[in-house]
């Protein structure tokens, strides 16, 4: 099969989007010529109104508080009684000067990127696999969601049980194959790896479900045509599945990034960010300031939280750029 042919296949795949479209789809409309109904501004906002009201009612206030907390010098007293003095960037400066900052930032990046990479790749592989539609596939796919039914306190505790260095089943398994004891949760070298493994496990169902739905939107005729042309499974994946899944992949990865940046309870339950700061991420650090001791320190906690929001925002802007540069 020639490369030229594969490119044809790619092109036709990229232009056809829905099952309703059959032979000879028109070329993809450019952004300018998109279908836009007349008088649509008003109508568009009418469709958006409920969500806008909802966001305003429930998010504006907590967000405002988050910013306010990070710009004032709060003590428990002023938290309750009010009257915390404005302190400008002091909280941010304090946080950034703290030696924990660089560790937490690095851990956050490693935790997020490694988690996303594995969650996405494994999720996609599973989605493609389940998309083959064999006996029991729907049931098994549903079973993959069970981890999401469990309160995190339970699943995270189960992982720390399994990773326990003395009596955990993971070390027992390693012992059976002749590998020595690993201090998964209590060694500074392994703690981050352990929480990443648990987090990948938790994230797989999310990726699987969304990517699977995306796969279902790809018209089956494309694959039929491709296999008539003799395209192998891998070629079909590269030429049809992957490019057509791009918008769904992008949103999955973006949402995954956001949720992974936010993860704190899993890490908190498994290691408390320790030992030392070895598995401390920005979000566990922020929690530690606010709730980790008997004397809450909300200001720096909020500052760390806002830094995280900025990081997520950067990814968001990148996503929007990516979307704009994308054909059709």
């Amino acid at each position: 099969m020639s490369t030229a042919h594969a490119d044809d296949l790619h092109r036709s795949a990229a232009t056809s989007r829905a099952p309703s479209e059959h032979a000879d789809p028109p070329p993809a409309p450019s952004r300018r010529s998109r279908w836009v109904p007349r008088g649509s501004q008003l109508a568009a906002w009418a469709f958006l109104l409920p969500v806008v009201v909802y966001l305003g009612a429930f998010y504006a206030y907590p967000l405002y508080r988050n910013v306010d907390l990070s710009l004032r010098h709060y003590t428990v007293r002023s938290f309750v009684q009010g009257g915390a003095p404005f302190s400008g960037w002091d909280n941010f400066r304090q946080v950034i000067d703290n030696p924990t900052f660089s560790t937490a930032l690095r851990n956050t990046m490693v935790f997020t990127l490694v988690s996303i990479l594995f969650q996405y790749v494994l999720g996609l592989a599973l989605a493609v696999f389940f998309h083959r539609g064999f006996r029991l596939a729907p049931t098994l796919r549903a079973l993959f969601l069970i981890p999401w039914l469990l309160p995190l306190i339970v699943s995270a505790s189960t992982w720390s049980w399994m990773f326990n260095s003395e009596s955990g089943v993971v070390n027992y398994g390693l012992h059976l194959v002749g590998v020595g004891k690993v201090d998964w949760l209590t060694s500074p070298h392994w703690a981050l790896t352990s929480v990443i493994i648990a987090n990948i496990w938790i994230g797989i169902p999310f990726n699987l479900v969304i990517l699977y739905s995306g796969l279902q939107n790809i018209p089956a005729e494309l694959y039929e045509a491709a296999s008539l042309d003799g395209a192998t499974g891998w070629q079909q994946f590269r030429r049809i599945t992957f490019p057509l899944l791009r918008p769904v992949s992008a949103i999955t990865v973006l949402l995954g990034l956001i949720y992974t940046l936010k993860v704190f309870d899993l890490i908190w339950i498994m290691t408390r960010g320790g030992p030392g700061d070895s598995s401390t991420t920005l979000s566990t650090w922020s929690y530690r300031y606010g709730f980790g001791s008997l004397l809450p320190d909300f200001g720096p906690g909020a500052a760390v939280g806002n830094i995280l929001i900025l990081i997520a925002l950067a990814f968001g802007l990148f996503y929007i750029r990516l979307q704009r540069s994308q054909p059709a």
């Binding site: 966001l55 998010y59 907590p62 967000l63 988050n66 973006l254 949402l255 956001i258 949720y259 940046l261 936010k262 704190f264 979000s283 922020s286 929690y287 939280g305 995280l308 929001i309 997520a312 925002l313 968001g316 802007l317 929007i320």
Partner: peptide, 10 residues
């Protein structure tokens, strides 16, 4: 973008 930020609020 607002929706994105909204999801970051802990």
């Amino acid at each position: 973008l607002l929706l994105l930020i909204a999801q970051m609020v802990p």
